[in-house]
Design a protein around this nucleic acid. Sequence first.
RNA 1: GCGCGAGUGGCGGAAUUGGUAGACGCGCUGGAUUUAGGUUCCAGUCUCGCAAGGGGUGGAGGUUCGAGUCCUCUCUCGCGCACCA
Length: 878
Amino acid sequence: MRRQYPFHLIEPRWQQHWEAQETFRAFNPGESPAAEHPFAVRHGDTAPESLEKYYILDMFPYPSGAGLHVGHPEGYTATDITARYLRMQGRHVLHPMGWDAFGLPAEQYAIKTGQHPRKTTEENIANFTRQIKGLGFSYDWSREVNTTDPNYFRWSQWIFLQLYHSWANPASGKAESIDTLEFPADVTTDEARRDFRDDHRLAFVSHAPVNWCPELGTVLANEEVIDGKSEVGGHPVVRRPMRQWMLRITAFAQRLLDDLETIDWSDSLKEMQRNWIGRSEGAEVEFRIQESEDRICVFTTRPDTLWGATYLVLSPEHEWVDGITTDDQRSAVTDYRATAARKSDLERTELAKEKTGVFTGAFAINPANDEPVPIWIADYVLASYGTGAIMAVPAHDARDLEFAQKFELPVRVVVQAPEGESLGFVGDGTSVESGFISGLPTPEAKAKIVEWLEGKGQGKRTINFKLRDWLFSRQRYWGEPFPIVWRDGHHEAVAESDLPVLPPELDDYKPTTEGDPPLARAADWVDLSDGATRETNTMPQWAGSCWYYLRYLDTQNNERHVGEAAEKYWMNVDLYVGGTEHAVLHLLYARFWHKVMFDLGHVSMAEPFQRLVNQGIILGEDGQKMSKSRGNVVNPDGVIDEYGADAFRLYEMFMGPLEMMKPWNTKGVEGVYRFLGRVWRLFIDEGSYKDYEQAVTAAPDQAEALLAGLKLHAAINDTEPTPEQLKVLHACIKKVTDDLDGMRYNTGISALMVFVNEASKWESRPREVLGIFLRLLNPFSPHLAEELADRLGEVSGNTLAYQPWPEWDEAFLVEEFIEFPVQVNGKLRGHIDITPETSREEIEQLALACEKVQQFIFEKEVKKVILVPNKLVNIAVK
RNA sequence: GCGCGAGUGGCGGAAUUGGUAGACGCGCUGGAUUUAGGUUCCAGUCUCGCAAGGGGUGGAGGUUCGAGUCCUCUCUCGCGCACCA
């Protein structure tokens, strides 16, 4: 196919120019550009740090072997356009890129082939770099980070130590040094004090059941388990107790929830985080066990239904089950617990349509009415939420009702529904048959019963979160080793001066045995000369991505994770763009780490990402999700070969709104490619381009040199633009500026198309007008814009990157004659010719006199004439 | 089940605050140039109707001079969470 224009020559040339010129370098406080750098050409002696900054961040990719897919450049193009736009607007823009390079695929490939994951990772990064650079993004490559680089993960380990050395002080609600933790009076021995501290650290060791994925040979965080299967690979996950490192994210649940109010994220994303944090207000109520002094504590959000609590249910794992079970029920209970323990999470939720459970034989006393209620165990009660025990109120809870009906337990209505059936009613109503709270509306009933329980010492108001502590260790090779050693059964921090802790070299990357990490195989590495042994787990992939946005600010700093001045100047991230897949993983973890760092004084702001935008996913041409098995994956390399990077960028944005899910259509790429061809022909003399093409056919190796022989279009000249031309130009400036401010890239592009459609008709094309158009085009398709601007005339600093963004003048947009719409009863009936000076009265008269309008108001009563300035006039008749 | 979002031509999508529905692009139809095709350029393209005119933004109501936009009910699709007491 004939090329619309020689993008294959233009694009690499400008990419090399930007690289050589370091066009997109951002400058830290204290740094300044050389005098000939385009930043200095634009801003003169002004110190970069005195300019208003804008930090625009992409979610850095995992460099997989498959290379870039079309989803990556969607977000990257959007941020690049905004970065280039704001640079032209005079902002000091930081726009970096890096690699989230620890991860499972490289390790699995290593297990299969014996090749070191570092090698795979390096190759993949090289490929990603080539692809991303080929798209002409304006990244400051001097700030590239790689999470697997020891100079990077040294600081990931350092941050882990900050967590290790801290605790969450409930009094201040903040992370503080573990040294501020006061020991209770009864904690006196060194051993007890050590244990007490270890129980309070933000990074701590737990032996609780965890999500173990046998297929992957590692444990997973709750966030990484979906429907009982691993998020990566979809392998079954089972519960199993193991010694693991945990991070105390639960201590920050309330702040993670509250601070969502301070940031500019989409409602749906905030809602996803809120749901994940899962705050619910209620009360803990204590039920005395019959013929015993022990009390079972349950959590309920409906303490007002206490009179309707006709039985209790404990989770099968509840620690008291053994103690309370009666002899005649013991074998049934033991069997049930064994069955429940064998069930995977999947079976316990998905497959368990029908409620199951057994009676323990024991009874508890309902504190409201002193009646004995039976205690059951059932796996619909989760050990991990609340107290692992509930009071069942079958009349006002669907699950309890189902259970009660199956096992013929009593059901007692205690809330009157405002209307309709009260049995099974779960909303707010009025308490009935409930002693001293009868007659009270639900909220008041709740308050009163809790007050009463508190007075009796049998309950208290509480808040529960679904959020669990973060399981932070993995049984893998290709991750950050923990900066931890073990001595006499206790863990100790590695000295900061000994960081980074490098992983050992291995020949075999497989986990050793059931759950033993591959690092355990490296005896030389594990056993230290002083008798201590190294922790052999590694950190999860999230560790590196939790703080990379900070390292970009100061990648070369060997003294700190980030220099204070750089952090203060650049933070926080003004705009963060990425996919929704990280809504509750990366974005929650990073916020948590950031808050800890904030409390400890290592960063200056409480939230890292001020504004966050999710790009929608791109579907295949068949409207299905792209996948190898469907065979509908679009490879960007092929598209760029055929149409060029500028067309690719333009199409990714022209498809539709950034945040929307939308299908790929190669015909659409051709459309924007044709548009770029029209831009080319607006500037370049067609005859000379045809000559060039013929000459290139004869001498393909001379293509670069022959390109120099192209002539500008003969219609381009230095005449004064006509008012009509200025109107078209300024309408375009206005629309593109508005759309870029609102990140409406698709409509911005359509405005550029409208301009080109008009300008193509001009017999005289003023250089001034075309030059301004190229500045508008530059953020979208920078290679072509730079090339044509270069041919059109001198560009200061040899790049459009820092040319001032054009401003529009409303005066040029005023129409001399306006076709003003006239409606009758809200329906368009005709137009009248007016000018901006036409008075209201005149417009009304003209509208009523209009011939087309006449036939609709003839012999009717004109009730009202509504004139909306600059919009229309509407005549209401009857 | 709960929460969030979205339904507009043959298709992707426009329509900042209620104010000319369908911008821009794809596709399609016709024409011109070149011609082997393609490229490029011009014209047309929501629908019914020869026209005048009528209808039209998932569906049904409502508010309004005027509703794709606001309100009520309802249907469909997508996403998230899911026995969270």
